[in-house]
Design a protein around this nucleic acid. Structure first.
Lengths: 181, 181
DNA sequence: CCATATTTTCAGAATCTACTGAAAGGACCG
DNA sequence: CGGTCCTTTCAGTAGATTCTGAAAATATGG
């Protein structure tokens, strides 16, 4: 096997990455597989993953598929080999892009849509409301609007960031430091 | 009770906020309580929360405490009333600041620290390694460095963002649009 | 097509997380 | 103090999630 320092650091990183994933709502194993593939110099097959992380075939298969769906890893076919291999995106920036894009789609968009629906419901009723309820309605509208504005700002910032890439980030911090400090 | 549109939108928002929380590693109930308090015009007590969300006293108590620990809600004492009330931060930007700060502390810092440890372990051994392992070590170092750089960039960006507030965000997007597009 | 290699699926088991309710622990007041 | 009101704790349980392993499906090559 690998010399101890390499092996040890690999283990350490995989374990922590798994824990972090877990606390961000990604299954521990899925995150561990991702870490393993991120570090690995060459693509790995299902059996490699099973052996390395001591998980069942089914588990490995499911999680690998999910990672492919997320777009964080790729299937690789090799001539003269029936096995499928998997290879991770190694550009951290791209990884982050993929993850935020996916999470936005799955988790942010639904809440934005819901808030818009809430606003619409209240707007529609507002005219019919009498004194104590009318004020209440205004409060709700204000809260919803604030929330929505926040999501919109974040959204446009991420979009810009992604379009400009890591250099964009550097430029941003530079500009900010100059203009704000 | 509240007129239907208000009540319905409140329910809708609370439910969705709970779901979103759940998929971000925050317990559904904790997120629901947070949503309830965010919308509420006045502070609520434990019994209000229990009744409104149909949860047990213990559950309400635990989650309220956690929200206080996170810094997302505040305990409020009222003269001549033994009950404790709770009131949410209403500034969405402040909320976001609180949340990212907390999550960074709990989940990002440990992984950064781990990566640094991994780097150190390999650096220390590198000199003793022979040909195939030596190259492997370089690969690992490179991967770790890339990861770390990313976290550092994100970190400094968030710090700046937080220091400059929501106007900072606007300014950023403005600047970016100009300089990049 | 058959034989073989590989992947996927999924019912049931194991594990983890969140919740309840009751008991214990304050705090406050007369 | 003793009584009342309220909060916290926590053992047990309910519920959700993840994992296993074997069977079914799919792919490949002769």
């Amino acid at each position: 096997m690998l010399p101890s320092a390499l092996e040890a650091s690999e283990n350490l990183f995989i374990r922590r990455w798994g824990e972090m994933g877990a606390s961000w709502g990604i299954s521990r194993t899925m995150a561990e597989i991702h870490a393993l593939l991120y570090l690995s110099s060459e693509p790995l097959c299902t059996d490699d993953v099973m052996e390395r992380l001591e998980v069942s075939r089914g588990n490995a298969s499911m999680n690998l598929r999910q990672l492919v769906n997320w777009g964080l890893i790729q299937r690789i076919h090799r001539r003269g080999d029936r096995k499928e291999y998997f290879d991770a995106e190694r550009d951290v920036w791209g990884m982050f892009d993929t993850i935020t894009r996916e999470r936005r789609r799955r988790e942010v968009e639904p809440i934005v849509e819901t808030i818009e629906r809430c606003q619409a419901m209240i707007e529609k009723e507002k005219a019919n409301l009498k004194s104590p309820a009318k004020e209440q309605a205004e409060v709700y509208l204000q809260r919803f609007r604030a929330m929505l504005e926040f999501f919109e700002s974040m959204n446009s910032m991420f979009n810009l960031l992604m379009r400009t890439g890591p250099e964009g980030l550097k430029k941003i911090t530079g500009l900010l430091r100059k203009t704000m400090k």
